[in-house]
Design a protein around this nucleic acid. Structure first.
Lengths: 112, 112
DNA sequence: ATGATACTTAAGTGTATGCTTAACCGATCA
DNA sequence: TGATCGGTTAAGCATACACTTAAGTATCAT
């Protein structure tokens, strides 16, 4: 492994999984319990727990247990750190759109 | 693996490695050859090649070989797709800073 | 207390990742 | 023509990841 390391490792690693991104998409609409988060997926609950702990370890999600229910919500800190890193690269590379909202930049979104 | 998948998988996966981010940081300052990219690191050239092919596979880097020298440069497409995904989450979560440049948001940058 | 609910932990499995060394190929220099 | 430079391929290895099943813990309902 190359030297250097930071919270960005964990953040991008967490974002690299489509299931974890789906969980974040869900959470960005509002808080949810573990089983609510698990419901749309066909994988086991422990698997969801593992994803959640990755997300929480990365600072992308915060959770709180009340009674027997753990409620998860999205955390913006890590998300904005990742955003900042990306934007810095785009800006250094002289991308005039780097600091604009994305509606103005519909020029290929990487999904095809 | 949870269903769903996209170019974002590859993009975030590529960004999850500190060495690959270092390569991108270098490339965001301008194009470089493979050995120029390898120079700051203590790992073997094949290892650098593998990182480059991950970056290229993710659409983060583009390269062109002339004579025996391969010149690499950063590609903004995948970078802006990743940026767009992150910003969409921040906006859905009603983050009023989501669409602002990062200088205004120095509130923890994930490195500690 | 008994049983159901909502997680949580532990252990194991198959695959992907990051790295290495050794060998190889085409371009350029002496 | 032969040596060297810049990059590439191949094979192998150790660790990390994503998932599973089985079993366990703390609540809440009856």
């Amino acid at each position: 492994m190359l030297n250097r390391s930071s919270g960005l490792d964990a953040t991008f690693q967490a974002l690299a999984d489509p299931g974890r991104r789906a969980i974040l998409e869900r959470l960005s609409k509002g808080p949810a319990s573990v089983s609510q988060l698990a419901q749309p997926f066909e994988i086991s609950l422990p698997a969801i727990m593992q994803h959640l702990s990755v997300l929480e370890g990365a600072g992308l999600v915060r959770s709180e247990k009340i009674g027997r229910v753990r409620t998860c919500r999205i955390e913006q800190r890590a998300l904005s750190a990742a955003d900042a890193w990306i934007k810095a690269r785009r800006r250094e590379w002289h991308d005039p759109l780097a600091d604009y909202p994305d509606e103005l930049q519909t020029k290929g979104d990487g999904s095809g």
